[in-house]
């Protein structure tokens, strides 16, 4: 390949030119080490979020209040496992094994979305998580469909389709609660109050504070800034809350005619950093749950490979004998 004759600087110029002209970077293309590293960080964090995200909702499958809701929730949690799988596979195209990614999650070296460190306490939380948490994730993921790395971008197209179904199932739960008994409506309001602000935090720190933003924008890993995406989410959520007849948790929210968007109250960034740094209700529980399942499954995975080996050996023996 001609790439062998090119200097690092020349290769990088070709790479950047591809990005600038909206061509996708594919696994076998040359890419700067920092681009690869940045992608592995972001994509694996995304995969881990899907996997850890199975826990707060998985926690409610056995308690879902109707058979229909149970079916939908179970399907949804299953989809999340599927998203985790696509994303692990897409990350593996960057030259890292799933086992390494999982080890990094379990050691705390890799992160997952901090929203999952909040506990899912009531059935209303299944509504709020689907509607707001998945809703915020979609805003981000729609933008990521245009990300520069091919496998990530294609994965996002597929994931987005299923995520819209997830958001709808969450909103349907909220609608039923909001038009239900006073206790149900109270449940909906309480879940909205607890999950609204953490959902806004999902977009990450303000652009001025974001460690990874500038480079990620230049490489088109990220296509829109944290604050722009957050604003979209804030604006789209206002009429949804109104339709439910619930109170908006942000008392400072006002429509800004000039900007054509809502001005909102300030996010409690102390809480954001506190939860990321281990002070959420469920941080330890989430990782310990994952480690426990992984360790308890070790003998099963060992048995699988032992059986595979035996089968292979038997085949070889049979062929040798023949």
């Amino acid at each position: 390949m001609a790439e062998y004759n090119k200097s690092e600087a020349e290769l990088e110029a070709v790479f950047q030119q591809k990005i600038d002209s909206e061509q996708k970077i594919e696994p076998k293309d040359w890419m700067p080490a920092a681009y690869r590293k940045n992608l592995i960080r972001q994509m694996s964090q995304h995969a881990h979020s899907e996997i850890i995200g199975m826990q707060p909702e998985g926690n409610w499958i056995t308690r879902a209040p109707s058979l229909r809701r149970k079916t939908v929730l179970l399907s949804k949690v299953q989809d999340e496992g599927g998203h985790g799988l696509y994303l692990y596979s897409a990350t593996e195209t960057l030259g890292i094994a799933r086992s390494e990614l999982i080890a990094a999650l379990q050691s705390g070296q890799a992160k997952y979305a901090s929203i999952f460190n909040y506990p899912a306490q009531t059935w209303g939380d299944m509504g709020a998580i689907g509607w707001l948490v998945d809703g915020a994730a979609i805003v981000n993921q729609v933008s990521l469909q245009r990300t520069s790395y091919g496998p990530y971008s294609r994965g996002m197209v597929r994931i987005c389709k299923e995520e819209s179904f997830h958001q709808r199932q969450g909103y349907v739960i909220m609608m039923e609660l909001a038009k239900g008994t006073p206790a149900q409506k109270q449940m909906a309001q309480d879940s909205l109050n607890r999950f609204y602000w953490p959902s806004l935090m999902m977009f990450g720190p303000h652009d001025s504070e974001s460690a990874h933003s500038a480079k990620s924008m230049k490489w088109k890993i990220k296509r829109e800034t944290n604050d722009d995406l957050r604003q979209k989410f804030i604006d789209q959520t206002v009429p949804q809350i109104a339709y439910l007849g619930l109170e908006h948790p942000d008392k400072d929210l006002v429509w800004n005619e000039e900007k054509g968007q809502h001005d909102s109250g300030e996010i409690d960034w102390d809480e954001f950093y506190a939860v990321i740094n281990g002070n959420g209700h469920s941080n330890r529980q989430r990782i310990q749950h994952h480690v426990k399942a992984h360790e308890e499954g070790a003998w099963v995975r060992d048995a699988m490979s032992a059986y595979q080996q035996k089968k292979l050996q038997r085949k070889v023996n049979a062929e040798t004998a023949a």
Partner: peptide
């Protein structure tokens, strides 16, 4: 369904969830 998020690996989380869904469908 109690296996979801507790299976030996993700593919099994999904498969067990699938079988649970089938039984749930039969019950319904």
């Amino acid at each position: 369904s109690e296996w979801v998020s507790k299976a030996p690996f993700v593919e099994e989380d999904i498969a067990l969830g699938n079988v649970a869904l089938d039984f749930l469908g039969h019950a319904r």
